[in-house]
Amino acid sequence: MHPAPSVIAFTTFSGLGFGLLFWLGLGQPAPTGWVAFAFFALAYTMAVGGLLASTFHLGHPERAHLALTQWRTSWLSREGIAAIATLLLGGLFALLRMWSQSGPALGWLVSLGCLATVFTTAMIYTQMRTVPRWRHWTTPALFLTLSLAGGALLANRSTAALVLLALAAVLQLVAWITGDKQFAQSGTTLATATGLGEIGRVRAFMPPHTGSNYLLKEFAYAVGRRHALQLRVIGLILAFGVPIPLLAAGLTHMTALIAVLAHIAGVLCLRWLFFAQAEHVMGLYYGKR
């Protein structure tokens, strides 16, 4: 799948923003006044910035409000509704916190909304019958764990961050080990795609066009896949390998900054791989994966 920068930025930063908002909703930490403003501003910058980035790849962003109408069937629609509802409730909660008012029930609702938003984002990918690598429980599990881990890191919840980062690293490894086999296990091949398998061995002989097209650019993106192993190692080191020891040693302001920046760079790298390594069954028609 084509790793569109807008979608990578969106899933990474809105994941982190909603992760931070989750912890703030739980009152972990429970700042007041300007400190509260700073925390909520950081969460909102990332969550809203991510959501805005996601509209950059739309053909008609001016019609984006229509995307809130089809929640009965569409995970993308559900995500939009969950995100907006959570951000509205979170805004109210932020105002309460800045004036040192407590609203635990509202806070819990905001946290629940954050989980719902990240889960619906993950389900947009998980639901795809056409991309076997994504169609697995590890996709929502990893999206949620990464969001909560990054949020805990930003919220300075060291113990939670440590546990969640370790869990996310394990889930990422499980997702790679299972994901690498899922296309083969799905049973979809050029033989089933063409229905010619009964006659003999099928090979793509001649493409329908000599140039490229939307389908090849969007679904048969293979650039950089040969560096996948190196990028996996780099992603693991940055997202988990750097922050975990720093957290274990106890964070200072300087090491916290390093841990956060490394984690964000690592998640961006892992998200790039999430798209670039995902193989769409349509590619089979072109003899590609």
Partner: peptide, 21 residues
């Protein structure tokens, strides 16, 4: 009503939908 998000083309295994540039 189409916002050009491309998700329907992702969901189609046959490559039957193309976004007009």
């Amino acid at each position: 009503a189409c916002i050009g998000c491309g998700l329907c083309a992702w969901a189609c295994p046959y490559g039957a939908r193309e976004m007009d540039a």
